[in-house]
């Protein structure tokens, strides 16, 4: 298992431009290994956009330019020598809506490892079991691995997607509002899973839910786009307890006390 040493990000003056509109600008922050960092802020403040920079999924949208520098364990991930496909093996992502592939539970989890050349049945079996255990889904599905993934409930599907992302042994897991489409019990299970995982994986989670950010994260970054005429910015980043009890910026305080957003 990967341990706490790797999986850190350093963002230096990061900006994101769609076509000729700059959506996010001037983000400088660090993401520490083996911790949970929450990105909060109102809708449209660029949280997901910033998240997608970290595994270069913005590349797939076309017409997107990322400025500044993003160092992943000291390596500039936008350097020409970095292959985004390889980066994504190390920086996994879980999406807002559960998106299992139309295949069996086993094949879903084995999808990533198979792409990267794991063929031996015993090795795959072990990987699938370990990943499902880490995603806290193993007990519920261990006797039905051959069943179609669409037979699972929404919460189970989302944990399957977490297991699927873990199967490539990433150092970082990006989560884009992973519980926003789920019921409270499933949300609880996802949060428990995140708490379990953070000792071995760096987690960056975008959330609309401030209680969730307060419950699960070690550090919180608050982003805000004050006007459509200007790009979104990072207002404040820091220790979650400090952010929620004694924020440095008035806007952060207004947001977390529910005065807007």
């Amino acid at each position: 298992m990967v341990t706490a040493a790797s999986g850190s990000f350093e963002l230096d003056d990061v900006s994101v431009t769609y076509g000729n509109e700059t959506a996010v600008a001037g983000v400088t922050m660090s993401i520490e290994p083996a911790s949970v960092t929450a990105l909060i802020g109102p809708s449209g403040c660029g949280k997901s956009t910033l998240l997608r920079c970290l595994n270069r999924m913005n590349d797939e949208l076309g017409n997107v330019k990322v400025g500044g520098r993003i160092l992943f364990d000291g390596v500039d991930i936008y350097d020409r020598s970095v292959d985004p496909v390889e980066l994504r093996v190390r920086v996994g992502q879980v999406f807002q809506k559960p998106n299992p592939f139309p295949m069996s539970i086993f094949d879903n989890v084995a999808y990533g490892p198979r792409t990267h050349g794991v063929r031996r049945k015993a090795e795959l079996d072990a990987l699938v079991e370990e990943s499902l255990k880490r995603a806290a889904l193993w007990e519920e599905v261990k006797n039905s691995l051959k069943k179609h993934a669409f037979e699972l409930s929404g919460g189970q599907q989302q944990r399957l997607c977490i297991a699927r992302a873990l199967a490539t042994s990433p150092e970082v897991l990006l989560m884009d509002e992973p519980a926003s489409a789920l019921d409270p019990i499933s949300t609880q299970q996802i949060e428990d899973t995140i708490a379990e995982l953070k000792s071995s994986v760096t987690i960056v989670i975008v959330t609309h839910n401030m209680q969730q950010a307060a419950r699960i994260s070690d550090r919180t970054a608050f982003m805000l786009r004050e006007s459509m005429d200007f790009p979104a910015q990072l207002v404040e980043v820091g220790d979650t307890r400090v952010m929620f009890t004694n924020p440095a910026d008035k806007r952060t305080e207004a947001y977390i006390t529910g005065r807007f957003g």
Partner: peptide
Amino acid sequence: PADLRTGSLALGNTRWQTVHK
């Protein structure tokens, strides 16, 4: 659905692997 494609790409698959698988 597009989210199946992004899901596959995010797992470190190339475009072609995504199409194929």
